[in-house]
Amino acid sequence: MTKVDLRNVSRVYLSQSGPVYGLSGFNLTIKDGEFICVVGPSGCGKSTLLNIVAGFEPPDMGEVLINNKKICGPSTQRFVMFQDHGLFPWLNVTQNITFGLRMTGVSQKECEERAATLLKTVNLTRFATSWIHELSGGMKQRVALARALAMDPEILLMDEPFAALDAQTRDMLHEEVELVWQQTKKTIMFVTHNVREAVRLGTRVILMSAKGGTILKEYPVNLPRNRFLEDVEVVHIASQIRDDLRQEVLKAGEAEADIAT
């Protein structure tokens, strides 16, 4: 079953040096329960893609269909995990995690129970009543993951959520996300610039072109689960993608140089 369907989606930004294509004529279908990873050179339009699927920005052309229905604006069924956590400083850890539940009218008692479970999942039980500014970067991101899981959305959109984390925390969160995906069969769209992370997590990896916001190539990843970043197969597929990515970056660099001269 098709979960997400992007049809000929374009998004243009007007900058001082003329129009910039965030996305142009972008087509992508994501099946229910897929774990899509998006990689590409910096500035290729990955965040634009995620923002459009989330409904934060409307596409200038084309349409985005979720469950075969055209979207209008953001929804609690498409939760976004931001790179900069986006937690609320006026709430403590537990209140942040249960904020969405309270908004949807879940009782105080149930909120507390859910928070306790989720805090255990991300190993932060000791910090249940801490303020956000008292946490380290990795801990904040763990709270952000717990908040996303509390919402239990159909689609989880993640924009480089683990980019700034240390290796241990990242590995732990990889396992956590993988486990949640296996248990709930959510559709996940995961943006990263780390090719190996993409292969480690995804069922399919999409490589975007440096300029123009289109898909350059797709790579299915049919490896058994409970993968590791260091698995030989993971490294093997990742190196293929990396080669293509490097070529793309070089090509873009040459084009840039051409314009400059």
């Binding site: 929804s75 931001f82 900069d84 986006g86 969405g100 949807t104 959305p153």
Partner: peptide
């Protein structure tokens, strides 16, 4: 902007947006 974007996906819309965000 991050807080404003987090609001609707957490279900804080309408008057709740004003009161809680």
């Amino acid at each position: 902007t991050l807080y404003l974007r987090a609001a609707p996906i957490l279900g804080a819309t309408g008057w709740r947006f004003y009161r809680y965000i």
